[in-house]
Amino acid sequence: MATVLKIENLHKSFKLGFLLKKKEILRGISLSVEQGEVFGYLGPNGAGKTTTIKCILGLIFPEKGNIEIFGHPYLSPKAKEKTGFLPENPYFYDHLTASEFLDYYSQLFLMKKEAKEEKIKSLLRLVDLEDSADLQLRKFSRGMLQRIGMAQALLNDPSLVFLDEPLGGLDPLGRKEIRDIITRLKDEGKTVFLSSHILQDIEMICNRVAIIVNGEIINQGALHDLISEKILFTEVILSGVNEKELKELGECLSGHGDRTLLKVFKEENVEKALQLAQSSKGKVHSLIPRTETLEDLFVGIVKQR
């Protein structure tokens, strides 16, 4: 697979406060993104995710390092023609209607009139805003703004799309809609660079991830390589069983009515718990083996630092 984005040894610092004290935000970031993958860029707040994206898109200038997009220098128009960008908490020209807004941005790509009109219609359909085409952006909800932001990021049919916290602040339905669009982009063979700290979503849609903490990449690779498939513990929900006997098999976490949630760490104890339920004429409501999640990995790494 071809490399679409290559970052080498990226450094950036800002001068802050009255005394202009220098604060290092990025400390030698290096990563590469391959064609057609959804690349998750994870990190706690203030880790340097947005700063990295801003450097790639030429919004801020790195002090050191090299960035290439499709083999072109990152600031060249050729690189920018192939990329799309949805910023975090997007705010657009609220005096424009949705279609006026997309029309304005399409002019920046020098799109021809017919192609432009067709593209705007199809994008409004894609983000489910056809009915709001003539509504001013000031009247848009948070989710609608995120979707129109997604539409502007896709105006030039980009091969590489940067999404900075696209799922932040959205309700579950809004999150699902954005996730569906990302999955669709992936199916179309586009590359998505997704920055987020909503780990469940990243786990659901990303092929590879990089974890950034304090301006350094701590871990990167394919999700299945990073996360162990070994069973960490098993969660068993039972009822009609004496809790005292269960405590010998594992950790009793919570009770809801007569139900008990038991966290069992040894595999042989799972069998014993089931036998106990059977002998006490109790009931097993669920039994879920838990493997390591991205959240476990992430929390582990952040705590270590």
Binding site: K80, Y91, L108, G149, F162
Partner: peptide, 12 residues
């Protein structure tokens, strides 16, 4: 208002 982010990231 950060409207500049989406403009400058375009080929301009």
């Amino acid at each position: 208002k950060k409207t500049i982010y989406t403009i400058i990231s375009k080929p301009i």
